[in-house]
């Protein structure tokens, strides 16, 4: 099966801090990879490097077989049009109502007329279980769960072939966490998209992912099927998935 996303020996530093130290990772077309790792392990930096928000100093990132590191302007836009992204805190635009947030890419990127964009927003919101009553609300008046749902609706609005999820359940109660995890799984299944999720929530890993990778100190130290997580005797993985304070993982700031 072809790789939709492929990272080869990716390095990224901030000043003297070497965050990514040679990441090698691939996501097959149509699969859902969940990258787990503690705070400060480099998960967000890796995802931002794939999205083109950060430029690695070394290594290559391929999307659907095409190298993307260093692309700018129109060429970068063409790559980004294949992406949908759910940010950790939603990153909804405060100045726009929900429907314009959801159909933003279609309106700005494809010049979709407002009436068609409104219909697109209704369809996308319906996929995440939200009705027309939220269309004209502004992000400031939404609850945390609704924020995530609207963010998810925006991520899938243009039906992109690749969707990224950055800590999709952070800040949600356990019930809403389960709701969002199942929504993500159902939406992705319906769209047939390739996805990459970064999280440290094991319930998300088991619900969303079919493959998982553990990032530790800027390197992928374990990868495999989600079903294999519990059978693994890798001491780093065992410590992480069981949430143990004692083990080989160095705790940041301790």
């Amino acid at each position: 099966m072809t790789d939709m996303i492929k990272l080869s020996n990716v390095h990224k530093s901030f000043g003297s801090k070497h965050v990514l130290k040679g990441v090698d990772l691939s996501v097959e077309k149509g699969s859902s990879l969940v990258v787990i790792g503690g705070s400060g392990s480099g998960k967000s930096v890796m995802m931002k490097s794939i999205l083109g928000l950060l430029t690695p100093e070394k290594g290559e990132i391929e999307i659907n077989g095409h190298p993307t590191v260093g692309l700018k302007g129109g060429k970068r836009d063409l790559v980004n049009r294949q992406f949908g992204m759910l940010f950790q805190n939603g990153a909804l635009f405060d100045s726009l109502p929900v429907w314009q947030n959801v159909s933003f890419a279609a309106m700005q990127g494809s010049n979709m007329p407002a009436d068609e964009a409104l219909e697109l927003a209704k369809e996308s919101l319906a996929l995440v279980g939200l009705g027309e009553n939220v269309l004209d609300l502004y992000p400031a008046s939404l609850s945390g769960g609704m924020h995530k749902r609207v963010g998810l609706a925006r991520a899938i609005a243009t039906r992109p072939p690749i969707i990224f999820f950055d800590e999709p359940t952070t800040g949600l109660d356990p019930i809403m966490t389960d709701v969002i995890n199942h929504l993500i799984r159902d939406c992705v299944n319906e769209l047939g998209a390739t996805t990459m999720t970064i999280t440290h929530d094991m319930s998300s890993v088991r619900t969303i992912g079919d493959k998982a990778a553990l990032l530790y100190q800027g390197k992928i130290i374990w990868s495999g099927n989600v079903d294999a997580l519990d059978q693994s005797d890798d001491p780093f993985l065992v410590q992480f998935i069981n949430g143990l304070a004692d083990g080989p993982i160095e705790i940041a700031g301790a």
Partner: peptide, 11 residues
């Protein structure tokens, strides 16, 4: 992260 969101939305 709204500015990052703009970039990922090809704007």
């Amino acid at each position: 992260e709204q500015i990052d969101a703009l970039t990922t939305l090809s704007t």
